[in-house]
C-alpha cells in the first residue's frame, strides 16, 4: 500500500519524503484546492522545487484541484490543471465533472484521481466516474464502514485510496454545505471549512467562547481544553440537552485496520493535514512508514506498536482518536 502524505508547503513536502511517504499531495495558492489557508500551499516555483525533490527520490507528487469551479472562475481552475500538467505532476486529484472532462480531454495521459470531494461511496458511482472521465483512482469518503468498503472494493473499477489518519469529516465530503451556511464559504466553493477569518474567541464570565460567523460553537470551563471551532464539533443544545450533538473533537486513526485494508486490495492510505505543521507531517509520516513496513514483513502478525499509537495520539486533534465510520457502532 502506498503512503500518501499532505504537503501544505515545501518544508512539509520534504519532511514527508524524508520520512518515507510514497507520494505527497499539494495544492496551489488559491481557491482551486480544498485547503485554502493563509500562508499555505504552493506557488509555481515552490511546486517545481517540491516536485523535483520528490521525484529525484523516486516518490510521486499529486496535485489537488478539488474544489468546484465557480461560474465566473472557470479559467482559474482550467489554468490550474494546465499548470499542474506543465509542472509534471504524477496525477491530478479532481472532483468537478466539468474539470474532470477538461483534464481527460487536454491531458489524457496524466492520471486522474477522484477527490474525496467527488462523493463516490459506491462501486456504481466509481463506475460512472471511470466510464466518463477515465479516473485511475478514487479517494473514498469517510462515511463507509469496513464492511461497506469491502463490498465496494470487490467491484471497484479503479484503485482505491482511503483516509488513514487525521481530521475526521463525518459528513459525506463534497456534499456538506454547513460551513457556507454559517460563513458564506465552503469546501466546494472556496476550499475552506469553518474558515479562520470568521472565528472569534472571547473570554466571558461564562467561560471562553468560540464563535463562527457569530454563532456560538462552544463554551469552555477553565479546566477544559479549547479546540478550534470546526462547526460540526461544537456543543449544541438539542431537546434540552447540551452535548457534542454532531461529533466530538476527535481524529481518525485506522492503524489497527491496516491488515484488513491491505487484504481488501486498497492501493493507498492517505494522511490528512495539509494545514498542519512540517513537524506534524514528519512525525505522522514516519510512524505510518514503520507500520506499513512491518505490515509488509509480517502481515499475519501485524499489530500496532504502542509507541506508534502514543506518538499519533500526541498530535491528534482533540488528543483522542476513533475508527469513525469504519466501525459500524460509531454510526
Amino acid at each position: 500500500m502506498e503512503l500518501v502524505c499532505p504537503a501544505g508547503n515545501l518544508p512539509a513536502l520534504k519532511r514527508a519524503v524524508d520520512e518515507g511517504a510514497d507520494a505527497v499531495y499539494f495544492g496551489f495558492r488559491n481557491a482551486t484546492n480544498a485547503r485554502q489557508f493563509a500562508g499555505l500551499n504552493f506557488t509555481d516555483q515552490r511546486a517545481r522545487d517540491g516536485i523535483a525533490y520528490a521525484q529525484a527520490r523516486g516518490r510521486r507528487v499529486f496535485c489537488a484541484i478539488n474544489t468546484y469551479p465557480q461560474p465566473d472562475g472557470w479559467g482559474q481552475w482550467a489554468r490550474a490543471v494546465d499548470q499542474a500538467a506543465d509542472l509534471g505532476v504524477d496525477a491530478l486529484i479532481l472532483a468537478d465533472m466539468g474539470l474532470l472532462e477538461y483534464a481527460a480531454t487536454r491531458h489524457p495521459d496524466l492520471p486522474r484521481h477522484l477527490s474525496v470531494q467527488g462523493s463516490a461511496t459506491s462501486h456504481a458511482a466509481l463506475r460512472f466516474y471511470h466510464d466518463h472521465f477515465g479516473i485511475k483512482r478514487a479517494v473514498l469518503p469517510r462515511v463507509l464502514s469496513i464492511t461497506q468498503v469491502r463490498d465496494l472494493a470487490k467491484q471497484s473499477p479503479v484503485e482505491l485510496e482511503v483516509f488513514a489518519f487525521g481530521s475526521l469529516c463525518i459528513m459525506a465530503e463534497g456534499r456538506c454545505y454547513l460551513s457556507s451556511y454559517l460563513t458564506g464559504e465552503s469546501p466546494n466553493t472556496r476550499g475552506v471549512c469553518s474558515p479562520a477569518g470568521h472565528v472569534r474567541w472571547e473570554e466571558t464570565p461564562d467561560g471562553l467562547e468560540s464563535r463562527l460567523g457569530g454563532v456560538l460553537i462552544d463554551r469552555y470551563a477553565d479546566d477544559e481544553r479549547a479546540g478550534y471551532p470546526t462547526l460540526c464539533k461544537g456543543r449544541f443544545a438539542v431537546d434540552g440537552e447540551t452535548y457534542h450533538a454532531i461529533e466530538e473533537p476527535t481524529s481518525l486513526n485506522t492503524l489497527e485496520l491496516l491488515p484488513e485494508l491491505a487484504e481488501l486490495g486498497i492501493s493507498a492510505v492517505k494522511i490528512e493535514g495539509r494545514q498542519r505543521s512540517p513537524a506534524y507531517v514528519s512525525k505522522v509520516a514516519g510512524i505510518w512508514r514503520q507500520a506499513l513496513d512491518r505490515l509488509a514483513r509480517e502481515p499475519a502478525r501485524f499489530h500496532p506498536d504502542p509507541a506508534w499509537l502514543a506518538g499519533l495520539g500526541g498530535v491528534a486533534e482533540g488528543t483522542t482518536t476513533t475508527l469513525g465510520a469504519y466501525e459500524r457502532r460509531w454510526k
Partner: peptide
Amino acid sequence: AALNLYNRQAIAVL
C-alpha cells in the same frame, strides 16, 4: 442539487 453542478461544463457533461 447534491450533484454539485456549479459550472456550465459540468452541466453540459450530464
